[in-house]
Design a binder for these strands. Structure first.
Lengths: 193, 193, 193, 193
DNA sequence: AATGAATGAGATTTCATTCAT
DNA sequence: TATGAATGAAATCTCATTCAT
């Protein structure tokens, strides 16, 4: 199955570059926000700027793709949870996935950008709805099993998870890191019936 | 008592300019992030860039002041709660204050900047500690009164409040707004013993 | 009387820069076409690129202004011919003006650009119509005096004048120059009754 | 007889590519000037850039060939007029040929490029001289027959023909088209004795 | 002191040309 | 041989900061 679909299938090396660009861009955006220079992104991916621009005509379309890919990963993961032993396990895995440093930081860094652009972008809107949808379905399954408290919706839970990754500037850096892990466990515990 | 401390007290109009710049910068940073052009900030404040630079030698020192002022307002508010009828009332007011759209958005927008710069800036570090401190004191007072549950610290509460203002890009804009208000009430309710 | 009108009147030095930019851009475009680097245009005008861009937000709007100014000069000249002793003199002056190296070359160099953009630009359309109009009026005056043959319209004449400045690549450069001067005289002679 | 001369005769398909490139480049240059991207030229010709560069080592040599081919076609046409019933017929055909939309526009678009490069390029110089030569010979033949006025040389006539194709930006697009056809007829009529 | 013009370094983007597939 | 991916130099454009008015 294709990850990116569209367009007349890339040559193997080009596809590899595309993936490295998306991955590298994700890292850099996590570290330094969505304004990080295109040149740096190219460098991180080990390609020239030209290659970056051949794949993504401008910064906007690159960031868009980074965001889209992030949601696609989430959706694929949710999809894969069909074979999880129980619905509860599926939810726990999804929650941990969202809390992973890579993903949590990226999604925090993209939050303002997405708030600005999501509504004008049909595909992105579709992806976020899709993601939210599967996430909520997983939650409902766990609730139907009786394993998870029922006074919380999927989107409540997503919001709670974001606590995990946001760093409070009132606290020193290590206090933040410690708190994040702690919150993740608290949340998972708190979800049990 | 001086609001701004330091420096040889400004002429009245200069002081007014300074305030308009800080206020305007706060708004723009909330709307468009801390990279918004200096020229736009000056315009929003109704002054020329020259004036902006006369007051703040560079972008860093301006943002720093915007952040500092934000904490000073919080500290002043906490201070003023000495006369609140009960400690619980004081906490509720502080929580609502943090949830105010203006403030909540600004602090969300400044979060990455602060995470990056707070540690190298003694005054800012002092202010955040001071703010956190008074906030925690208010919490403790309310807890001592027996009005507030005791398994939550001041910094836990601050983090919880941030749920109130963060917009989830998975949700459409109005769903976010609705959720924010709802969370604020849930949090306040949930704090009661 | 203001040449450029619009906008809140520029400071004296800024106005001077604006004029130097337009003039320099006109020269460079004549010499090297409408694609000359903006950096070179700035340099020719003795300013930094930044200044160029402050005055003209992008290449398009600069070229547009160069073209507009060219037509404004033509219109002003036509206007000034009210006091020419006879209508015939007015026409001769206008014809020579169009044939002047500065103007003729610029208008030749701008021809493709204008063909592409004139129709989408109301002000430019207005200016070209205005110019054509006054030119034709001058022609009619000379014809009414009986000094000029009547089987040629203003726009025919304009087209003829363009012969004067276009260089035929089939001929060596000096043959072209010689031919140009010769054509100008032939045209003027040929217009007499 | 070879059209392209030089080089070790191309394979049939390579030859076809070469021709499509020249043709496509001619069209694009007419439409968008000699700076049109190489990638677009390749696309118009239905080949990859690589193929384009295999045939023409750089942009200069491509445009050079487009121009050369244009002159070669003119020369061939003039050559073919040996069998025209009269010299006058030959001239009329040549004039119409130069006025053809495809050719007229291309030659107008190439004019500045040729003015810049012709002198440094012996083959191009030779071709233009050759073309001019045969054109003038045709004119002389017609004049010798007594069918054409004698106060006009071949190069005057070429210049006149350019009136036919040049678009005056002072006029709207359709006025230009109408005028072009009209001029062509006027010129042919005007050439008669 | 206030203004907004000027500057130029740096970011974005394009495209001629080379080279791996 | 044909293709189109990769490259990087050069162009466009933005904006923090300085400086003349």
């Amino acid at each position: 199955m294709e990850t990116t679909a569209r367009a007349p299938r890339l040559r193997a090396d080009a596809q590899r570059n595309r993936e490295r660009i998306i991955a590298g861009a994700g890292e850099l955006i996590s570290e330094r926000g969505p304004d990080v220079p295109m040149e740096d992104i190219a460098q991180r991916a080990g390609v020239g700027v030209g290659t970056l621009y051949r794949r993504f005509p401008d910064r906007h379309s690159l960031i868009r793709e980074v965001a889209a890919e992030m949601f696609r990963r989430g959706i694929a993961l949710a999809e894969a949870q069909f074979d999880a032993p129980t619905g509860w396990d599926a939810v726990v895995r999804l929650v941990r996935f969202c809390g992973e440093p890579g993903l949590g930081e990226l999604s925090a860094a993209l939050r303002p950008w997405l708030a600005e652009h999501r509504d004008g972008d049909a595909e992105l809107r579709g992806l976020t709805m899709d993601w939210l949808d599967r996430f909520e379905r997983a939650v409902r399954d766990a609730q139907d099993e009786g394993a998870m408290r029922t006074d919380i919706t999927g989107s409540d839970l997503l919001r709670l998870i974001s606590l995990t990754t946001c760093r409070m500037p009132e606290l020193p850096a290590d206090a933040n890191r410690a708190a994040s892990a702690r919150y993740l466990e608290i949340i998972i515990d708190g979800l049990r019936t």
